[in-house]
């Protein structure tokens, strides 16, 4: 066994893996969010569909996608491993425990929040990612640009259903809390704390965890409202 695998099996190594995958997914969120804002355009989905094709056909993006999938899987698997170790570390629970006195609930329930996000991801992937890759999407033809898979049409169709929108909103609330711990926690795990910079990281982290999920949640909400009108 090499020193590297040994290091990654230690408690700090495992944390490091959580931190790196988490931070990568945070970066991914930024990109994904920027792309998805194209849905706000009133162009019948042209910009969005062009973007979708770009994302699925550019090699570098595809490579990055693979890293994203791997990050999601590793992040989830490691969280299960860590949770199991942590459960074992306290076989008998307190009869009376005022945990709220010392830490926020979302910091203590990252597993539950993560699970909500994960369930959402499964639905999300099935609805759009799978369809885009393997499904039979209708095709649109924009002037002079050739044929595009019309991902926009299923997105618009999906967001006409209120329960689907609700699922998104709930998941994004979950994500917001997951991020509000995860963002600063990732930096702490990397050892990147300093009297001077930590307040900045915490501030950015807080804004990030509010703004990004809100924009994500606004997309289905806006499209739902539009579909009503």
């Amino acid at each position: 066994m090499s020193w590297l695998t040994e290091a990654l099996k230690s408690s700090l190594g495992r944390k490091l893996v959580m931190s790196f995958t988490g931070l990568f997914l945070i970066l991914f969120l930024v990109g994904h969010m920027l792309g998805n804002t194209l849905l706000f355009f009133d162009d019948g989905g042209q910009a969005f569909n062009e973007y979708a094709r770009f994302m699925t056909s550019t090699p570098i993006i595809q490579a990055l996608s693979l890293v994203t999938y791997a990050s999601i899987i590793i992040h989830a698997v490691y969280s299960i491993v860590i949770t199991r170790i942590n459960r074992r570390a306290r076989p008998i629970q307190y009869a009376l425990n005022k945990a709220s006195a010392s830490s926020p609930w979302y910091s203590r329930n990252m597993g539950i929040l993560g699970t909500i996000v994960l369930i959402f991801l499964v639905v999300h992937f099935r609805s759009f990612w799978y369809e885009m890759r393997f499904g039979q999407l209708p095709v649109v033809n924009y002037d002079g640009s050739g044929e595009f898979k019309d991902l926009y049409s299923i997105v618009a169709e999906s967001f006409k259903q209120w329960w689907y929108v609700l699922l998104y909103v709930v998941a994004m609330i979950g994500l917001a809390f997951h991020l509000s711990h995860g963002f600063k926690s990732a930096f702490q795990t990397l050892g990147l704390t300093h009297k001077k910079y930590t307040p900045l990281i915490e501030g950015v982290g807080l804004w990030f965890s509010i703004v990004v999920p809100t924009i994500f949640a606004l997309i289905p909400v806006v499209m739902f409202i539009k579909s009503l009108g």
């Binding site: 230690s10 408690s11 074992r88 570390a89």
Partner: peptide
């Protein structure tokens, strides 16, 4: 850290408690 792991303490998840 190796000894800490060996003893069976849980992993830190930065809750700050």
């Amino acid at each position: 850290v190796a000894q800490m792991d060996k003893e069976g303490f849980g992993l830190c998840t930065n809750t700050g408690a």
